[in-house]
Design a protein around this nucleic acid. Structure first.
Lengths: 227, 227
DNA sequence: CCAAAAGTGTTTGCTCTACACCCATGG
DNA sequence: CCATGGGTGTAGAGCAAACACTTTTGG
């Protein structure tokens, strides 16, 4: 064991950029800080990493504490460690991004006890504490980029979903309309989702429900410079 | 300032996977450990992050200490923090990968004073300390992937280079022969390198020298799922 | 039977791939 | 003049983009 008084050590935290699609908008989960620094300001959910806790477990724990969601898609994003990013001293944070299904029963909408937690549309965020605005910007770029060449979009939907719903998610995140026929052809060709025998009735003709294929490889190689 | 005795803190290190192409092979820089744990074993160059030192600066410093190279291409790779990855206790490491030009005057080839440092071909590595084998594997995957859709390959070459030299780098790293005409067309279309007025004479017809365009955007978007 | 949303194919253009010969220099 | 590596174009195939109508249900 290396002891603490050998050398001073930075503190290590995790922060989570949790995305969801609600009310036809891409939203990010923020919590309101209660203590200085930045007391009262909005920030990403996060906290210190336990001494025996893997990093991803810490991110999952922080996310679960704020939302109650425990099976979200979680991916390491980047590690921010500039001295001076935290006025309290040297704090290195490992940022994660998470995709929360639209039907996940997210509690704390309104903040019952401790820290208030709320969803904010990504294009209408309040000022954020620390360098969290940079982190969100980077997470958003990564999310868009991932959508372009993988099929992670369904992680933002319930277990079964219609192709129209999935297309809406892509349109909302990418910020542009997509052609229905081309969308369907490509998303199906990618082979990461499969039809179920079920349909959903609403207004108009019922739509077939699809689900994620457990055995699928999420990364769909796009055209490469040197195939 | 948050003081050390508030909570125990993990130690934070950086490790660098430095690639170069020598003797027609892709090689990785390793250092031989002098102290336990894993005394005598080979490991990635790396070390503790200074309390006032940015992470990338720490990686650059470690790389410079081992090689004398101070202007390499450096990119954050991933942060490894499993408890138990270091037998001394909780050590979180931020891994970087670096591309070293073939003509860089790398000293310590043979280890003059302290730790011995050597290049090893990636396909013939010794057993590595800690989880460094995992880190190298991931860095290699990322390097191949980057080569496929960007034009970072020239970072492994001197400031000016011929297209044939560049093609060799790609072939060595990707492990397959490429068509000369298609390679040239695509690499030039990507627009990240430009011809100089100079030629290099060797055996046969002299070859035009190219250089990196400072103003170029390195990321060449490949075919996307939803353009 | 009308409104509303689901579902479905084809044509056109572009980009990737495969492939072989002439060019410029040094010895 | 010969050996060596540098440099160049094209035809065919496959993929992506654009585009409009028919189908199924509920009210």
């Amino acid at each position: 064991m290396v002891y603490c008084y050998e050398y001073p050590r930075p503190a290590v935290t995790v922060d989570v950029v949790a995305f969801t699609v609600r009310q036809e908008r891409l939203q990010v989960l923020l919590v309101q800080r209660e203590r200085p620094p930045f007391a009262g300001a909005w920030a990403l959910p996060g906290g210190f990493v336990g001494m025996e806790e893997p990093l991803e477990a810490a991110a999952a724990r922080e996310l679960a504490e704020e939302t109650g969601v425990s099976d979200a898609y979680l991916e390491q994003l980047y590690t921010y460690g500039d001295p001076g990013r935290d006025p309290r001293g040297r704090v290195i944070t490992v940022a994660y991004f998470a995709l929360i299904p639209a039907d996940a029963p997210v509690r704390a909408e309104g903040g019952d006890d401790a820290a208030q937690a709320r969803w904010f549309p990504v294009d209408d965020l309040p000022p954020l504490a620390f360098d969290h605005a940079d982190i969100v910007t980077y997470a958003l770029r990564r999310l868009r980029y991932k959508l372009e060449y993988t099929a992670v979009g369904f992680q933002l939907l319930p277990e079964t979903f219609t192709l129209t719903e999935l297309q809406r998610v892509y349109e909302i995140i990418l910020g542009e309309k997509l052609d229905k026929r081309n969308f369907r052809r490509r998303i199906l060709r990618a082979g990461v989702i499969e039809p179920t025998p079920y349909f959903r009735s609403g207004e108009g003709r019922p739509a077939r429900l699809y689900r994620y294929r457990e055995d699928a490889v999420a990364e769909v190689k796009a055209r490469r410079l040197f195939p």
